[in-house]
Amino acid sequence: MKILLIMDPGIPIPPPQYGGHERLVYMFAEEYTRLGHEVSLLSGPESHISGQVYPFGKNNLKRSKWQKAKELLLVWKFLLIKKRDFDLIHNFGRLAYLIPVLNSHVKKVMIYGRPVAQKGIKAVTACPHRNLIFTACSDYCVSTGNVSGRWETVYNAIDFSKYDPADQVKPDAPLMFLGRMDQIKGLHTAIEVALETGNRLLIGGNIPDTADNLRYFKEQIEPEFDGKQIIYLGPLDDRQKSHYLSQAKALLFPIEWDEPFGMVMVEAMACGTPVIGFKRGSVPEVITEGKNGFIVENKEAMIQALQKIITIDRAACRAFAFSKFDVSIIAKHYLNL
């Protein structure tokens, strides 16, 4: 099968550091190639995959609306010329990219990794269209956009082969928090849990750049860093994430918003590390109680769940998560659609 993946410019594929969707696009491109398909990629400059790359636009997350309008026209021109060259268009970018091919024979899968703007879904499905499937990364995320058209839940994926699991850790192993240090991610709660239970807490992630979250970081988070019990590691690449997660007894995920998926939960599970997460968004879909972690309502319940963390078999935690979230599983799910 001839497959075209589309991604907005802004960050090259694969991303040099952070870039969740860009990382997904690269993984699927390589997995589809491994399965014997002919894969092409329409994305920003400096991207590369094993197949053909068609670069367009600029890699600048703060590029102007005019630049984005020009990029839209470039994609429309490309699809009008090339639409018969592909059996499947797998779109991780803007829904508007698909307008020229909505009613064409080529199969189209539109992917969402965040809450969906229903206005766009209604507008597109009101037009003549065929062979169009919408997917989102969790049942929760599907529920935000499922107002029209065909919808399916397809979870996000990681490549489990990139993570080195640890089947056992020491009793005094640290806890870990991984992610943006925005207030809605709940790092302040993770710090409180560590301090109240006497555990060390390893923290990996970027310092916020928005004014409100930077103030939160400076006033509530940074003063707690002591390098001994509350330890800030900085931004982590894949190798570093695997190293530190495999050492941790648990990943804390005390979110204060409805997280669409939460990739860091699966990254922890790939290392055999169970997750204790607040019951928001997709957390009940990613964590299966007692198998790869615990779902809790608040800080007090998170502390109580820590006492049960040794009951989870780390090898079984990884194996169970692999069966649901490895790229080999999810790529086949997309192709089966």
Rank of each mutant, 00 (worst) to 15 (best):
residue 26 Y to T: 05
residue 155 Y to C: 04
residue 197 T to K: 02
residue 199 N to F: 06
residue 103 N to D: 10
residue 275 V to T: 01
residue 50 S to R: 13
residue 227 G to M: 05
residue 318 R to C: 04
residue 325 F to R: 03
residue 264 V to H: 05
residue 1 M to L: 10
residue 59 N to V: 13
residue 36 G to F: 13
residue 214 L to D: 00
residue 108 K to A: 03
residue 27 M to F: 07
residue 133 I to P: 00
residue 209 D to E: 11
residue 156 N to R: 06
residue 113 G to Y: 11
residue 94 R to P: 03
residue 38 E to T: 13
residue 65 K to R: 09
residue 68 K to I: 02
residue 100 P to T: 06
residue 150 R to A: 10
residue 152 E to D: 03
residue 334 Y to S: 05
residue 19 G to L: 14
residue 216 Y to S: 02
residue 81 I to L: 11
residue 61 L to T: 15
residue 105 H to F: 09
residue 90 H to P: 05
residue 297 E to A: 12
residue 97 Y to T: 00
residue 262 G to S: 08
residue 179 G to N: 03
residue 214 L to V: 00
residue 29 A to K: 04
residue 289 E to F: 07
residue 126 A to W: 13
residue 327 V to Q: 06
residue 203 I to E: 00
residue 44 G to I: 11
residue 323 S to V: 02
residue 307 Q to C: 11
residue 248 A to R: 02
residue 49 I to S: 04
residue 57 G to D: 03
residue 24 L to I: 14
residue 103 N to S: 08
residue 76 W to R: 12
residue 35 L to I: 12
residue 121 I to W: 01
residue 249 K to H: 09
residue 117 A to S: 14
residue 184 I to R: 07
residue 4 L to C: 07
residue 163 Y to Q: 15
residue 292 N to H: 09
residue 46 E to F: 15
residue 199 N to Y: 11
residue 292 N to T: 08
residue 275 V to Y: 00
residue 6 I to E: 03
residue 122 K to H: 07
residue 189 T to K: 12
residue 103 N to R: 01
residue 210 T to W: 06
residue 221 I to N: 04
residue 316 A to M: 05
residue 209 D to I: 01
residue 193 V to A: 03
residue 234 G to I: 11
residue 169 V to K: 12
residue 199 N to K: 11
residue 299 K to V: 01
residue 191 I to F: 02
residue 7 M to H: 14
residue 37 H to G: 10
residue 314 R to P: 03
residue 165 P to K: 15
residue 278 F to V: 00
residue 290 G to I: 15
residue 274 P to C: 08
residue 284 P to I: 04
residue 147 V to I: 06
residue 98 L to S: 02
residue 39 V to M: 09
residue 73 L to K: 07
residue 223 P to R: 02
residue 300 E to H: 09
residue 203 I to W: 00
residue 237 D to Q: 11
residue 191 I to K: 00
residue 36 G to A: 15
residue 89 I to V: 03
residue 6 I to R: 06
residue 288 T to N: 09
residue 291 K to I: 04
residue 246 S to C: 06
residue 10 G to Y: 02
residue 172 D to T: 07
residue 7 M to I: 13
residue 302 M to L: 12
residue 5 L to P: 03
residue 1 M to G: 08
residue 204 G to S: 11
residue 316 A to L: 09
residue 231 I to M: 10
residue 314 R to F: 15
residue 173 A to Q: 10
residue 170 K to G: 14
residue 176 M to R: 01
residue 293 G to T: 04
residue 262 G to Q: 06
residue 202 L to T: 01
residue 144 T to R: 07
residue 211 A to E: 15
residue 145 G to F: 01
residue 44 G to H: 06
residue 196 E to A: 01
residue 286 V to K: 01
residue 184 I to S: 13
residue 115 P to H: 07
residue 155 Y to T: 04
residue 29 A to M: 10
